[in-house]
């Protein structure tokens, strides 16, 4: 464990908690892409199948359970509890255009052709594109509440910190996970234009992000 990975995991946890609390306390999921949240729940489900088979550490197990519970709870809030506030007309990204290529690639490019390894690879590839329905929804509506932008900021920051973690691990222990690194770079690149808008607009005190 290194400081970049720890900060990355904390940033990821903060993002997930921000989103959950925003929906739970405002009793509304307006402006939130349910599709992205379903994809994230799928990412955690396919990645954490080893939750019961391989024990890494208490921290690892606890964080996996927390991520799984919060992501499914968020999907529940969006599609069941507060479904009247779910803006399905704006959440129109065709997720099959993500799932099919990601599934295909995880069969072609993986470390080991076993079910658990292919599912782990699928989760890594899927995570890099899972935010696209949410970013697409924001460009479609042309705006996002500031709390949603804070969610996206910490979510984007988490994988950027993981990139630093991989540089650190490469130089200190020769660790190099090519699939995770390449996907992490792609994932972080998708956030770049959002990061620019976030710094230039939201941090200037605007109540909400309105796209030009």
């Amino acid at each position: 464990m290194n400081v970049f990975r720890l900060l990355g995991d904390v940033s990821h946890l903060v993002a997930i908690i921000i989103l959950f609390l925003k929906i739970f306390r405002s009793k509304s999921c307006a402006g939130i892409s349910g599709k992205s949240q379903v994809l994230f729940a799928l990412v955690f489900t396919t990645r954490y199948l080893d939750l019961f088979t391989s024990f890494i550490s208490i921290y690892n197990t606890v964080m996996k359970v927390v991520f799984l519970v919060l992501s499914y709870a968020t999907v529940y809030l969006i599609y069941l509890r507060f479904r009247s506030s779910y803006d399905s007309e704006s959440d129109t990204f065709r997720v099959e255009f993500l799932l099919v290529p990601v599934a295909g690639l995880s069969f072609l490019e993986n470390y080991d052709f076993t079910p658990i390894e292919i599912l782990w690879t699928f989760s890594i590839y899927l995570e890099s594109v899972a935010i696209l329905p949410q970013l697409f929804m924001i460009t479609k509506t042309g705006e996002a509440e500031s709390i949603t932008t804070h969610y996206l900021f910490f979510l984007g920051l988490y994988r950027a910190l993981y990139l630093a973690n991989w540089v650190w691990r490469y130089h200190t222990e020769g660790f190099f996970d090519q699939i995770a690194v390449v996907s992490g770079v792609v994932q972080t690149i998708f956030y770049c234009d959002f990061f620019y808008l976030y710094v230039t607009k939201v941090l200037k005190g605007n109540s909400k992000l309105t796209l030009p």
Partner: peptide, 10 residues
Amino acid sequence: ERVLGAHDEL
């Protein structure tokens, strides 16, 4: 190279 099956990252 990564150790197979041992994903120690979240």
